[in-house]
Design a binder for these strands. Structure first.
Lengths: 111, 111
DNA sequence: CTTGCTTATCGTATTATTACGATATACGAT
DNA sequence: ATCGTATATCGTAATAATACGATAAGCAAG
């Protein structure tokens, strides 16, 4: 990718892009859905649900955690995950605001 | 990435992931913002706004077009782009529904 | 038809992502 | 302490994404 130019974009756009990147794989969408359904979940259960190896699931969980969309805590020998409600709602608001601005301006389709 | 397992996920999740992927780069977020502000835009103007080469901007436009978030039409020697309102709103609804389900289930933070 | 302008595509280099197996770590139970 | 279970991380391979310059293609004007 040669050299990244991402730093040259405004913080707003970087942040939204980053959240979207975290959701840019169906496994991570599925994980969030499952966490929403069950409230919380241990890693092993997610591995059973997904068509992926344990190490791969662990990687996806790490990506979601780094994007602050989920939180994890250690529960004995397991890892319990749940949605990071506060940040997840920030993401929803960010997309929502983006949508409102967009929809307001485009009443009729321009092209 | 070895072999992709994406086909093994439900259509819903694939679709949402695909839209999110289209928004996973700040340049593409910026392009959508600009299109929302101005209604429509020719490629050259977007190139002036972004810290990227013309060919790179063209690539990002192609990505957004393939995700059906924008539409393009030829206008003499230029290319005019605008948001594909119908599909963009499908995306917004998809994220919104996802959010509602999530927020409803998680009244109190579990972990 | 040639020139100049605009945009898309091609080729290519660099970097990031995705996936897995193997291994390391951490804990509970025996 | 040892064993079994659960999870994270490392190493690595394959693939995708990002960025640019160069080039091609399309149109308008002269």
């Amino acid at each position: 990718m040669a050299i990244s130019r991402k730093e040259e974009f405004p913080d707003n756009d970087l942040k939204l892009a980053d959240w979207c990147k975290a959701l840019s794989h169906p496994a991570r969408i599925a994980i969030l859905r499952t966490l929403a359904d069950r409230g919380e979940c241990i890693c092993g259960d997610l591995v059973l649900d997904l068509p992926l190896a344990q190490s791969t699931v662990s990687q996806h969980l790490k990506a979601l955690k780094e994007a602050k969309l989920i939180k994890g805590e250690i529960d004995g020998p397991r890892s319990k995950y749940c949605i990071d409600k506060k940040n997840f709602e920030k993401f929803l608001k960010s997309v929502g605001d983006f949508g409102i601005k967009t929809s307001n301006k485009i009443k009729e389709q321009d092209c």
